[in-house]
Deep mutational scan, measured.
Amino acid sequence: HMTFVALYDYVASGETDLSFKKGERLQIVNNTEGDWWLAHSLTTGRTGYIPSNYVAPSD
């Protein structure tokens, strides 16, 4: 899985979304859904959809 880092805080707007904090590391499970990607937080262990423009590839 690709690892990304959150650029901003995001508060989930629905049950399927994943809240995260700036700097949180996320594994992308599925990024074929356009602007919303299914991600797994390496910080909280939770999985949900995130806005793709809130994250950047982590080196």
Score class of each variant (00 low, 15 high):
11 V>E: 13
2 M>E: 10
12 A>M: 04
34 G>Y: 08
58 S>L: 15
52 S>D: 02
9 D>N: 07
31 N>C: 08
50 I>G: 00
45 G>D: 07
38 L>T: 03
59 D>M: 12
4 F>I: 05
5 V>D: 04
8 Y>V: 07
31 N>I: 10
23 G>E: 03
26 L>G: 00
45 G>H: 11
10 Y>I: 01
20 F>R: 00
35 D>H: 15
6 A>P: 01
23 G>V: 00
4 F>S: 03
8 Y>H: 10
15 E>A: 08
41 S>W: 00
51 P>Y: 05
26 L>E: 00
28 I>M: 06
2 M>F: 11
32 T>W: 09
33 E>K: 11
13 S>F: 11
51 P>C: 05
32 T>Q: 13
47 T>D: 07
29 V>L: 15
34 G>S: 13
59 D>T: 13
41 S>L: 03
7 L>G: 02
8 Y>N: 06
2 M>K: 13
21 K>F: 09
14 G>F: 09
53 N>R: 13
14 G>L: 10
3 T>D: 08
16 T>P: 05
7 L>S: 04
36 W>V: 07
19 S>P: 06
3 T>G: 06
52 S>C: 07
35 D>C: 07
29 V>W: 12
19 S>Y: 04
6 A>Y: 00
4 F>P: 00
31 N>R: 13
41 S>P: 00
56 A>H: 08
2 M>C: 07
7 L>P: 02
43 T>P: 03
27 Q>F: 10
7 L>C: 06
45 G>F: 07
49 Y>I: 07
37 W>M: 06
6 A>R: 00
34 G>C: 07
7 L>F: 03
9 D>T: 07
27 Q>K: 11
57 P>T: 09
49 Y>C: 07
36 W>N: 05
30 N>G: 14
33 E>Y: 12
26 L>H: 00
35 D>E: 12
51 P>N: 07
57 P>S: 08
27 Q>L: 15
13 S>P: 07
50 I>N: 00
24 E>F: 01
34 G>D: 13
39 A>W: 01
9 D>L: 01
58 S>A: 15
20 F>I: 11
31 N>T: 14
56 A>T: 15
37 W>A: 03
12 A>C: 04
35 D>V: 11
11 V>G: 05
28 I>Q: 03
56 A>D: 06
12 A>L: 03
1 H>V: 14
22 K>A: 12
31 N>V: 13
26 L>I: 08
32 T>H: 10
42 L>C: 07
46 R>F: 10
59 D>W: 13
21 K>N: 12
58 S>K: 07
30 N>D: 15
7 L>I: 09
23 G>T: 02
2 M>N: 12
15 E>S: 14
5 V>L: 08
34 G>F: 09
26 L>P: 00
49 Y>Q: 05
29 V>K: 09
54 Y>Q: 05
37 W>I: 07
53 N>T: 12
28 I>F: 03
45 G>Y: 06
11 V>W: 12
43 T>S: 14
8 Y>Q: 10
58 S>E: 15
59 D>K: 04
54 Y>A: 14
14 G>D: 09
19 S>Q: 05
50 I>W: 00
14 G>I: 10
51 P>K: 06
35 D>T: 10
42 L>D: 06
1 H>D: 12
35 D>S: 13
53 N>C: 08
16 T>D: 15
30 N>C: 08
1 H>K: 06
12 A>W: 02
8 Y>F: 13
59 D>S: 13
14 G>C: 09
46 R>C: 06
20 F>H: 01
34 G>K: 12
30 N>P: 06
37 W>N: 02
46 R>L: 14
55 V>Q: 02
41 S>N: 09
31 N>D: 11
45 G>R: 05
23 G>D: 05
43 T>H: 10
8 Y>P: 00
23 G>P: 00
27 Q>M: 13
33 E>F: 10
11 V>S: 10
58 S>H: 15
46 R>W: 09
54 Y>P: 02
48 G>H: 03
55 V>R: 02
22 K>Y: 05
34 G>V: 10
34 G>E: 13
14 G>R: 15
46 R>N: 11
34 G>T: 10
49 Y>N: 05
38 L>P: 02
52 S>E: 04
39 A>L: 01
12 A>D: 02
36 W>H: 06
57 P>I: 12
54 Y>F: 13
56 A>V: 14
15 E>H: 11
14 G>M: 11
48 G>S: 01
10 Y>H: 06
39 A>F: 02
54 Y>D: 01
23 G>Q: 02
13 S>T: 15
46 R>A: 13
1 H>A: 14
10 Y>E: 00
34 G>I: 10
4 F>Y: 15
42 L>V: 08
34 G>A: 14
13 S>L: 12
13 S>H: 13
41 S>F: 01
30 N>E: 10
21 K>A: 11
11 V>P: 05
8 Y>S: 07
6 A>L: 04
38 L>Q: 05
18 L>E: 02
29 V>C: 08
39 A>D: 00
40 H>M: 14
41 S>Y: 00
32 T>V: 10
57 P>L: 14
53 N>W: 12
28 I>N: 04
22 K>P: 02
20 F>D: 00
59 D>G: 13
3 T>K: 05
52 S>P: 07
43 T>L: 12
31 N>Y: 13
5 V>F: 08
46 R>H: 10
30 N>Q: 13
3 T>F: 13
36 W>Y: 11
6 A>C: 05
47 T>E: 09
55 V>M: 07
44 T>H: 03
21 K>I: 09
48 G>F: 04
6 A>E: 00
36 W>L: 08
34 G>W: 09
24 E>L: 00
33 E>M: 14
59 D>H: 11
32 T>Y: 09
33 E>W: 10
7 L>K: 06
34 G>H: 12
4 F>L: 07
59 D>A: 10
15 E>C: 06
20 F>N: 00
51 P>W: 05
52 S>I: 06
43 T>K: 08
19 S>L: 06
11 V>N: 11
18 L>V: 06
2 M>Y: 12
30 N>V: 11
17 D>N: 08
17 D>F: 15
16 T>N: 14
31 N>M: 14
5 V>Q: 06
49 Y>G: 02
13 S>Q: 15
3 T>Q: 09
7 L>E: 04
33 E>I: 10
5 V>G: 01
38 L>D: 01
12 A>R: 05
19 S>D: 07
4 F>C: 07
56 A>F: 10
9 D>G: 04
56 A>S: 10
24 E>G: 01
4 F>V: 15
21 K>W: 06
22 K>S: 08
44 T>Q: 05
18 L>H: 02
17 D>K: 12
44 T>F: 02
40 H>E: 09
56 A>E: 11
16 T>H: 13
4 F>W: 13
53 N>F: 09
19 S>V: 04
42 L>E: 08
56 A>Q: 11
8 Y>G: 04
42 L>W: 07
20 F>M: 07
9 D>E: 07
27 Q>C: 07
25 R>T: 15
55 V>A: 06
9 D>H: 04
29 V>N: 06
41 S>H: 12
56 A>K: 10
37 W>T: 03
25 R>W: 14
38 L>H: 04
24 E>S: 01
53 N>G: 13
25 R>S: 11
54 Y>H: 10
49 Y>L: 11
21 K>L: 12
45 G>W: 04
39 A>N: 00
50 I>Y: 00
2 M>V: 13
38 L>W: 11
48 G>V: 02
28 I>P: 10
49 Y>T: 05
57 P>Y: 09
53 N>P: 05
46 R>E: 11
24 E>P: 00
22 K>V: 08
9 D>V: 02
1 H>G: 14
12 A>F: 03
6 A>Q: 00
26 L>Y: 01
59 D>Y: 08
16 T>R: 14
5 V>R: 04
6 A>W: 00
23 G>C: 04
13 S>R: 12
16 T>L: 14
19 S>K: 03
14 G>A: 13
9 D>K: 02
33 E>C: 08
55 V>G: 03
37 W>V: 09
28 I>T: 03
29 V>M: 15
49 Y>W: 15
36 W>F: 10
9 D>Q: 03
28 I>L: 07
19 S>I: 04
6 A>S: 05
1 H>E: 12
54 Y>M: 12
7 L>Y: 03
30 N>R: 08
21 K>E: 09
9 D>I: 01
14 G>W: 09
25 R>G: 05
23 G>F: 05
9 D>F: 02
26 L>F: 15
38 L>S: 02
11 V>C: 08
21 K>Y: 08
12 A>P: 05
27 Q>N: 09
41 S>K: 02
